[in-house]
Nucleic acid binder design. Structure first.
Length: 152
DNA sequence: GCCAACGTTGGC
DNA sequence: GCCAACGTTGGC
């Protein structure tokens, strides 16, 4: 089993939105970056654990955990001209973009803020803390995941 | 709202 | 295949 960190702007889709979904499951659509796409398509597997990160808000940070329940399949929002994620280069024959389904596991009683993460010496290697890192899907090590759960 | 850091696009 | 211009991300 592997561990990941998924970023989302809470204004767009928050952990509360995930919890409110039917069966508490939602597809993780709209990823339009090739590196992140490759991970969603090839590496993220059912059963993997996901740290749910709120970005572009005050404060940014990890707000809970989700679990992958369905692995990489074509992101159908790319086929919908009405969608803001529409991409005419992606077709049903040759899908360009992929997504996974995740299920709500828990919401932390309080956010583990970006600042908290920076303070923790065990997390200095975390990709999310690297300068300039903008990937919305990043791998997390088992040790990092464990450390973060202890910070709750 | 600013702006640094990136990724993507497209002319050449 | 280079690289300038442009768009986006996301912390501050």
């Amino acid at each position: 089993m592997r561990y990941w960190l998924f970023k989302s702007e809470p204004e767009t889709f928050s952990i509360d939105d995930l919890r409110a979904r039917r069966n508490q499951i939602e597809h993780w659509d709209g990823v339009r970056n090739y590196q992140a796409r490759n991970m969603l398509r090839d590496e993220v597997k059912a059963g993997d654990q996901v740290l749910f990160y709120h970005s572009n808000c005050k404060p940014p940070g990890i707000v809970g955990v989700a679990e992958v329940v369905k692995e990489g399949y074509p992101d159908f929002t790319a086929w919908n001209p009405e969608s803001s994620y529409y991409d005419p280069r992606s077709t049903k024959e040759k899908p360009q973009w992929f997504m996974v389904d995740i299920k709500f596991v828990e919401k932390f009683p309080q956010i583990i803020s970006l600042d908290d993460l920076k303070q923790n010496s065990k997390l200095h290697e975390m990709l999310i803390l690297r300068k300039g890192n903008r990937l919305s899907v990043t791998p997390v090590t088992a040790a990092e995941f464990k450390t973060i759960l202890k910070m709750v």
